[in-house]
């Protein structure tokens, strides 16, 4: 293939706990003509360490990231948070950070680099979209995810009230201030449920783990699905719920 050479950076969380999202990225990017590679030496971008106060541990991880992804045209992550860590924080942690500048969150890569809005997806469900804080405020993805979702055939997009409020995840915040995190989550869940959507989507599995974990505990009947999985879904190869 002669398409853009894209290195997948699924993030450690998605690699481990949400492999369907990464597989969906492979399907989606290949469908759009990209030459997708997965550098196996990648582990973690160091965000959890850095954000919790362990910058010294994050530093070698940032350096390793730069080594692993050296030489790729584009590095794409299904996470605004991890892409933000790489792009905004890595340059302060280590010098060899040219990889940082070539790192994109999925919706940015699709809209800004590939220049597509309609990715040929089909997803016949009622969906609401939660804009994750780091994709919104660190990367400034703006309405790119919404534009991508609006172009998906069969998808009914329902606006989320108070969409820009944090879901309360915040990495180790969810454990260190578990009660406050839960209070934030409660309001987010109420807003999601008020939409009547069947599916809540976002560009970050971490936030979806928080929102989805809360909804699942309530047996609310709303399923979290990562944006990549919706965009990968087609009439021929539709999204299938994993158990």
């Amino acid at each position: 293939m002669n398409g853009p050479r894209v290195a997948l950076f699924p993030t450690c969380l998605t690699d481990t706990a949400f492999p369907e999202t990464a597989k969906a990225m492979v399907r989606l990017l290949e469908r759009l003509g990209c030459d997708v590679e997965f550098p196996l030496d990648q582990t973690c971008c160091g965000q959890m360490h850095f954000n919790t106060g362990y910058a010294d541990h994050a530093r070698p991880m940032a350096r390793a990231f730069a080594d692993v992804f050296d030489g790729y045209d584009h590095i794409v992550a299904p996470s605004g948070s991890c892409a933000g860590m790489v792009r905004e924080i890595h340059p302060n942690l280590c010098d060899s950070s040219s990889a940082a500048l070539r790192t994109y969150e999925l919706s940015e890569f699709l809209v800004d680099v590939l220049g597509v809005v309609d990715v040929g997806a089909h997803f016949p469900h009622r969906v609401t979209y939660h804009p994750t804080c780091h994709s919104l405020r660190m990367l400034g993805v703006g309405d790119k995810p919404l534009r991508l979702l609006r172009a998906v055939s069969g998808l009914e997009l329902i606006p989320l009230p108070q969409a820009e409020q944090c879901c309360g995840f915040g990495g180790t915040f969810a454990l260190k201030n578990a009660e406050t995190s839960t209070a934030m989550l409660a309001d987010k869940m109420r807003c999601v449920q008020d939409t009547g959507a069947q599916v809540v989507t976002a560009g970050d599995n971490s936030c979806l783990m928080q929102i989805g974990g809360g909804l699942s505990r309530l047996r609310a009947g709303v399923r979290p699905v990562h944006l990549a999985e919706i965009l990968a879904s087609t009439q021929e190869e539709p999204w299938v719920a994993t158990p």
Binding site: D15, L40, L175, T182, S216
Partner: peptide
């Protein structure tokens, strides 16, 4: 504990048998 700090109020994701990298390999 400390995972209980999470599961006190939310379900945790079930980590599947096969990671993405195993699938890729």
């Amino acid at each position: 504990w400390p995972g209980s700090k999470w599961t006190d109020t939310r379900d945790a994701p079930v980590v599947p048998k096969e990671s993405f990298r195993s699938w890729w390999r």
